[in-house]
Amino acid sequence: MFENNIEPFSVYAIKYATVQRNASDNFIGSDPHDSATSMDYYVWVARSKEHLFLIDTGFDAQRAISRRRIFLRCPTEGLSLLGIDRSDVESIIITHMHYDHAGNLSLFKNARFFIQDSEVAYVTGRSMRHSFLRQAYELEDVLDVVRYVHTDRVNFIDGNAELVPGLRLHHIGGHCAGLQIVQVWTKQGWMVLASDASHYYENFESKRPFPIVLNVHDMLEGHAKLNELASSPSLIIPGHDPRVMERYNAPSEEMEGIVVQLA
Rank of each mutant, 00 (worst) to 15 (best):
G239T: 12
P209M: 11
L235K: 01
A121G: 02
R129W: 12
R129N: 14
H199C: 06
Y137G: 05
A136S: 11
G159W: 04
V43E: 12
E3M: 06
N160L: 12
H217Y: 11
H217T: 14
T18P: 00
V45C: 05
I65V: 15
D117L: 07
L105A: 13
A161H: 12
F204M: 07
P233M: 00
L107D: 12
H130Y: 13
V142Y: 09
S206I: 05
L235Y: 04
L52R: 08
H170E: 12
S48M: 00
D60Q: 07
F59M: 11
Y12G: 08
L229Y: 09
G174E: 06
R47E: 02
S198H: 08
L81Y: 00
I258N: 11
S198M: 10
S127F: 07
N4R: 03
N215S: 09
S234T: 07
P251E: 02
W185D: 02
A230R: 02
A197C: 02
G222W: 03
R147C: 10
A36D: 15
A230T: 01
D88S: 11
S118T: 07
I92P: 03
H96Q: 14
N249I: 03
M1A: 06
F108M: 04
G257H: 13
V216C: 08
D31F: 11
H33F: 13
W185M: 03
D144M: 11
F53S: 09
D241C: 03
K15E: 14
G257V: 08
E256F: 08
F53M: 08
A263H: 05
G103S: 03
A61L: 09
S30I: 02
H98V: 07
D85I: 00
N104C: 12
V149D: 14
S91K: 05
S87A: 15
E50F: 02
S195Q: 06
I70S: 15
I14F: 12
I28G: 14
P211S: 00
C176V: 08
Q135K: 11
Q116E: 15
F113M: 07
V89L: 04
S48P: 04
Y122R: 09
S91M: 01
V259A: 10
A111H: 00
I94D: 05
A230M: 06
V89S: 04
S30R: 14
I236N: 07
I55V: 09
R134T: 10
